[in-house]
Design a protein around this nucleic acid. Structure first.
Length: 635
RNA sequence: GCACCCGUAGCUCAAUGGAUAGAGCAACUGACUUCUAAUCAGUAGGUUGGGGGUUCGAGUCCCUCCGGGUGUGCCA
């Protein structure tokens, strides 16, 4: 897919690449703040001037001379402000261009990408922090697909971790049959885990018991093993169910127990030793340990302890090598779950089975959506393991898609009924803590959102059928939640508060939904769509100046859409898409508020307005789909 | 100690090194017999934490100070 700016960029690049050392990505376009500076602008002469110590003005003039004849869509290309190159579209071009390219598909880049997200410890219900992870991950997935990548979504299951052992220890006085009778297991374990954590803290005897449970799980000794298996599966099913409520889905579940069972780490260690990535430490304090050098901080990170056991990072390294295809071994697989609409199945890894090739793994680029606190380990994997093992011709890349935590405002913590210390009281936010049970459960939040939106729906339409109202309420709840989780930049700590999260006005998901719902409503009420066929050569000069100006700004803004999605991926910052969509909606609302469509008597003008609204609808539908925000029938 | 991140309107946040720093919320004023008021229009609100520097141009890059946060384990 080539969008408008990309086409111009290509021509520009060809005209300068012989003279300057520059990559196409460095040529960046923006829409100038004032139309007197044109409709599209680049500062490339300034950038080139820095590289060669020349006058930007002269470089700019030379570039314009070279490309002028090659770019037919512009009436003028002017140099301004000492080095800006400003492009002026021919009248009517942009409208025509956007209509013509409305449903253009992304080029098939044939690149396979794996995105790992969600990856919640399977010992309790999901909370708001996990929601941020899954929502960010899912927008990343859909954006990559939009840009033409083949994406495989993986969810990693730490089924052998100490957290599972904690709750198994807490449940040991029950037998498996009794545990199976527990309703809402994930939610039940939420409280149990908090209680267990309290008991374990400062009680060495309990901890020792728990460690024995952990060991028995690893050695597959019942009842500990079967209980742990049951719990992690059931909790996983609960996580999948909750995420499916938000439209978030997976292709493959990867179990840590299978990585251990199939001895992936052994193969990983062989590769790393052979390539001198891992080596025996010479540091007397790390005598007998195998380490990886982390150059950025000049630290040796222990991978294999002196007692020959593997540290936490080891399993992640093996998994990453498998994901990037730098590794011979593979898992076995079986079907785990079919979604209710039956359009998709989830598979899960296994440690035995048939040799069927499912084609999982082996991607060129691997994203791991995980909190910023994991940066240290993720950087080691990406910089010290994956990068050096990737030969230049088949570059493999592991990208840490990081984000800050969701925390709670002190007020919110108190609303939830927890006591907080005086110290915490003074802070702007308090960390979510599974161990203390301090968090908002994902499903509780979704429930609150549904209750509130149902009220709003009924307020606006008291006669609405119950089922219809519920469906719309769910859609609004999902829209509000998903937008809230991605609208902040990933470096912002979200200080969660019900007041903000339950907002339906202003910069919120429902605002975006409302914009599209109203556009759809206009189209429904239009007496006849047939009277206004899609037409590329509309007579824009019929519009009075004010309307033309506002309409033109929307067209310009619409032309940025694909570039914005690319920018979001390039910067690992999907909030770009949320912000862009919000601004687009503001512009659209402003326009059709000023210029009514159905009531317009001049059929030509009506045709123009309708065409614009259809363009906005087309882009907005795509954007909402990228963000997983549903479109209600009415609001 | 070392490394990284953050500090922008009363609050919550935007702003690829680019032309006049923008939104939402809260406050105030106005627009529903009208294509849906979950909307729209308007008023007010700023020394971008302080100070230096680089640059044609700095909220953005560099240095420094102040304030806040995170990571840095033979834990996971």
């Amino acid at each position: 897919m080539k969008y408008l700016q990309e086409e111009v960029r290509e021509k520009l690049y060809r005209s300068i690449k012989g003279e300057y050392d520059i990559s196409p990505e460095e040529i960046i376009f923006s829409i100038p703040p004032d139309r007197k500076f044109g409709c599209l602008s680049t500062t490339i002469p300034f950038i080139l001037a820095k590289k060669k110590k020349e006058k930007p003005f002269l470089i700019g003039s030379r570039i314009i001379e070279k490309i002028k004849a090659e770019l037919p869509y512009f009436s003028e290309i002017k140099l301004a402000g000492g080095g800006f190159i400003n492009f002026y579209f021919k009248k009517g071009f942009l409208f025509k261009y956007l209509i013509e390219h409305k449903d253009r598909k992304a080029a098939d880049k044939k690149q396979k990408v794996i995105v790992e997200h969600t990856s919640i410890n399977p010992n309790k219900a999901a909370h708001i922090g996990h929601l941020r992870n899954a929502c960010l991950g899912d927008v990343l997935v859909e954006s990559l697909r939009f840009l033409g990548c083949e994406v495989e979504v993986q969810n990693y299951l730490d089924d052998t971790g100490i957290q599972v052992a904690d709750v198994v220890w807490g449940l040991l006085h029950y037998g498996l049959e009794e545990i199976k009778k527990i309703k809402g297991l994930a939610s039940y374990l939420w409280q149990l885990y908090a209680d267990v954590s309290k008991q374990l803290a400062g009680n060495d005897q309990f901890k020792e018991e728990r460690n024995k449970v952990h060991q028995k799980i690893e050695d597959k000794i019942d009842p500990e093993y079967e209980i742990s298996n049951y719990i992690s599966q059931e909790v996983l099913r609960d996580h999948i169910r909750v995420m499916d409520m938000l439209g978030i889905r997976y292709d493959l579940l990867v179990r840590e127990s299978d990585i251990i069972e199939l001895d992936f780490f052994k193969s990983a260690a062989e590769i790393m030793l052979k390539n001198r990535i891992m080596y025996p430490s010479a540091d007397p304090e790390k005598k007998g340990c195998q380490v990886i050098k982390y150059k950025r901080e000049n630290i040796e990170k222990i991978i294999i302890r002196s007692n020959n056991t593997v540290t936490y990072i080891g399993k992640d390294i093996a998994y990453s090598l498998w994901k990037t295809g730098l590794f011979e071994k593979d898992f076995y697989y079986k079907k785990f779950h079919t979604y209710a609409d039956r359009v998709k199945d989830i598979y899960i890894t296994d440690s035995q089975g048939g040799k069927e090739d499912f084609g999982f793994g082996n991607a060129q680029t691997v994203y791991n959506v995980i909190g910023i606190r994991q940066s240290y380990l993720q950087n080691i994997i990406s910089e010290e393991v994956i990068a050096p093992l990737s030969p230049g011709d088949s570059q493999r890349e592991a990208i840490h898609f990081s984000y800050e935590m969701v925390a709670l405002t002190p007020r919110c913590v108190e609303e939830l009924g927890f006591k907080i210390t005086e110290e915490e009281q003074k802070k702007s936010h308090v960390d979510v803590s599974g161990r203390r049970g301090i968090a908002v459960k994902a499903e509780d939040l979704i429930g609150k959102l549904i209750v509130k939106s149902l009220q709003e729906v009924k307020l606006r339409d008291p006669d609405i059928e119950e089922e219809k109202a519920k469906k719309i309420a769910r859609e609004i709840a999902v829209g509000a939640l998903r937008y809230f989780m991605i609208k902040f930049s990933s470096k912002t700590v979200i200080a969660f508060d019900f007041k903000d999260a339950l907002a339906f006005e202003g910069d919120t998901g429902p605002y975006l939904q409302y914009t599209l719902v109203r556009i759809n409503s206009i189209l429904r009420k239009l007496e006849s769509r047939e009277a206004f066929p899609e037409k590329q050569d509309l007579e824009l000069s019929l519009l009075e100046e004010n309307e033309y100006g506002i309409l033109y700004e929307i067209l310009l803004y619409l032309s940025l859409m694909e570039a914005q999605v690319e920018l979001a991926i390039k910067n690992s910052e999907v909030s770009v898409i949320a912000n862009y969509t919000y601004t687009l909606c503001q512009k659209a609302n402003h326009y059709y508020h000023l210029f009514p469509i159905i009531a317009e008597e001049n059929q030509e003008i009506k045709h123009i307005r309708l065409s614009l609204i259809l363009l906005v609808k087309n882009k907005l539908e795509k954007l909402l789909a990228l963000m997983g925000i549903p479109v209600p029938e009415k609001m």
